[in-house]
Simulated assay, not measured.
Amino acid sequence: MLGVLKVNQIIEIRPGIVSKDEQGNQKCTPIYSRITSLYAEQNELQFAVPGGLIGVGTTMDPTLTRADRLVGQVLGEMGSLPEVYAELEVSFQLLMRLIGVRTKEKEKQMKVSKLSKGEILMVNIGSMSAGAKVIGVKKGLMKVQLTVPVCTTIKEKVALSRRVERHWRLIGSGQIEAGTTIPVPPPRL
């Protein structure tokens, strides 16, 4: 989204490997690697700028990337990535009606009910999808605890979804206002 990637550059991927410490708190260990190749379609590149899809070849162990485990993680120059958050405060706006869901009586669309404390939502931030438990709601502002840590910035846009009839349905959007960060260990290179 910003910056330049170059062949032989050392990169960082956040949040990286997520685990829990002895107390049960989430911790994340960023992945550090070196770029070995850059591709856009069939063209080999020496550097890549924002816009379009870029294939990034690295020295990373391939088992880290199996089963799309790195989807939603952020890649960038070492030391330049945003913070990793475990809780977020989001200012939000709900839709008036659910899209694509009809009630049986008059074939009208269902209304979106208000958010409630303890409710489980799905939050989409960039390409990352994370479960989120609502731990507080005030007029147009909610605090959520994420099931997985997310590397993002304040003022980033988010999409909110709720489980309706066994499907995740879009119920609103929002913007990150604040959050609780997870400490990221410094690189050991």
Rank of each mutant, 00 (worst) to 15 (best):
L2W: 01
N8W: 00
E12I: 00
G16M: 07
G16Y: 06
S19E: 15
G24V: 07
K27G: 01
K27C: 06
P30D: 04
Y32A: 00
S33W: 02
T36C: 00
S37W: 02
E44V: 08
L45H: 01
F47Q: 05
A48W: 03
G51D: 05
G51V: 10
G55F: 09
V56N: 00
G57T: 10
T58N: 00
T59Y: 01
T59G: 04
T65G: 11
R66Y: 14
R66D: 14
L70C: 07
G72Y: 07
G72W: 06
Q73D: 08
Q73C: 03
V74S: 03
L75S: 03
M78S: 10
G79R: 01
L81Y: 01
P82H: 02
E87S: 10
F92D: 15
L95W: 05
L95E: 15
M96Y: 05
M96L: 12
R97S: 13
V101R: 04
K108C: 05
K111D: 15
K111L: 11
S116W: 06
K117L: 13
G118D: 13
I120L: 14
L121I: 12
V123E: 13
V123Y: 09
S127N: 12
V134S: 10
I135L: 03
V137G: 10
K138P: 03
K139N: 12
V144H: 13
V144A: 07
Q145R: 10
C151T: 09
K155F: 14
K157C: 07
A159C: 11
R162K: 12
R163E: 15
E165A: 14
E165F: 12
I176H: 06
T180Y: 03
P183R: 09
P185M: 09
P186I: 06
P187E: 08
L189N: 12
